[in-house]
């Protein structure tokens, strides 16, 4: 009994161990931070690039949004929130917001579903599937301008292939870009088509990462194709889908080239997305103050929506 008491007592808690046995480190502050300083050195080039080409313009926009400007874009008078108030009053801006929301709703779900559908097809093990994979992914390699011009030809009311096809089917011709309802739909079709390549490729990669044995196990249990799709493929693909949805979503807010080439925001502002109206405000009307305010509003909206998406979307995502 006595002997047992004399045995040195082992520490019971981490705190106690720290208090009793921790010895001061002999390294100086300078030595301890060596890793951080090395990391900073590696980060420096990209920080510099981002700083000059992204953060500086962003903050300058914020700054400009509080001023009236001259034709060169230099700030003249500080006006506080005047520019924002102007936007709030502007029927044209409200129209732009509405058009943008409709455009996002038209393009994002359709892009993702189409890309997923094509990826599922291309993931089948069939002879010559490599060809289809290349074709489906090919819009990835096409510039916005080139794609938009191709569609411009296809949408042409008299010589376009789309109306020719409708005519062949004895259907009335459509004013793809001239009708104010159809114009937004046409722009959306072009955008969906342009999104497909990238989304398709990423989703196909995600599909190929899914363990084949999961499907075999499900087959032995008797699960059919759609049951497997719903209960295995989509959940397993959810991180990829989430990524694609986020990217497509942000892209939709930034769709500029196709609007500029196909409709120029018309007819009657029917396709005047916020990003396009920023351009018009700044570089056609030289209203840099309101344009900057719009840019800030758009940025805040996209940031907010993306954050919301992360907050609520990520719950449904199964990371492995």
């Amino acid at each position: 009994m006595k002997q047992a008491e004399e045995l040195p007592r082992r520490v019971e808690t981490v705190d106690e161990a720290v208090k009793r046995y921790r010895i001061p480190s002999s390294r100086s502050f300078w030595q301890k931070t060596v890793n951080y300083r090395t990391a900073l050195l590696y980060l420096l080039p990209s920080l510099l690039l981002f700083g000059v080409f992204m953060f500086y313009p962003m903050f300058y926009s914020l700054y400009l949004s509080f001023f009236f400007t001259d034709a060169q874009g230099d700030p003249t008078t500080f006006v506080g929130f005047e520019n924002y108030a102007y936007l709030w009053e502007s029927a044209s801006f409200r129209r732009s917001v509405l058009v943008t929301i409709i455009f996002v709703l038209l393009t994002v779900p359709a892009s993702v579903i189409l890309a997923l559908f094509l990826a599922l097809l291309a993931n089948e093990k069939l002879r010559g599937i490599g060809w289809y994979r290349t074709i489906f992914a090919s819009t990835l390699g096409m510039s916005v301008a080139a794609s938009a011009v191709i569609w411009l030809f296809m949408f042409h009311p008299t010589t376009g292939v789309l109306n020719a096809a409708l005519q062949a089917l004895q259907l009335p011709a459509v004013s793809w870009l001239q009708d104010s309802t159809m114009a937004l739909i046409s722009i959306s079709i072009t955008t969906i088509w342009m999104n497909t390549g990238f989304s398709f490729l990423i989703l196909l990669g995600g599909l190929q990462n899914i363990d084949e044995h999961l499907y075999e196990s499900a087959r032995i249990d008797g699960a059919g194709y759609f049951y497997q799709l719903r209960r295995i493929t989509v959940p397993m693909l959810s991180p990829t889908l989430f990524f694609i949805i986020t990217i497509t979503f942000i892209n939709a807010f930034q769709s500029f080239g196709q609007v500029d080439i196909l409709t120029g925001g018309g007819p009657a502002e029917a396709t005047n997305l916020i990003i396009y109206s920023i351009y018009r405000e700044a570089f056609i009307y030289y209203q840099f103050g309101p344009a900057s305010a719009m840019a800030i509003v758009l940025f805040a909206a996209v940031l907010l929506l993306t954050l919301l998406q992360f907050k609520f979307g990520e719950r449904k995502v199964h990371y492995q």
């Binding site: 044995h213 075999e216 196990s217 032995i220 249990d221 008797g222 397993m236 199964h318 492995q320």
Partner: peptide, 21 residues
């Protein structure tokens, strides 16, 4: 006969557990 009609169960080498369940 399709796998599900053969009245058998199978254990795979990597277990093939569904990671999301």
């Amino acid at each position: 006969l399709s796998p599900s009609k053969r009245e058998l169960s199978m254990v795979f080498q990597n277990y093939a557990l569904y990671p999301h369940l």
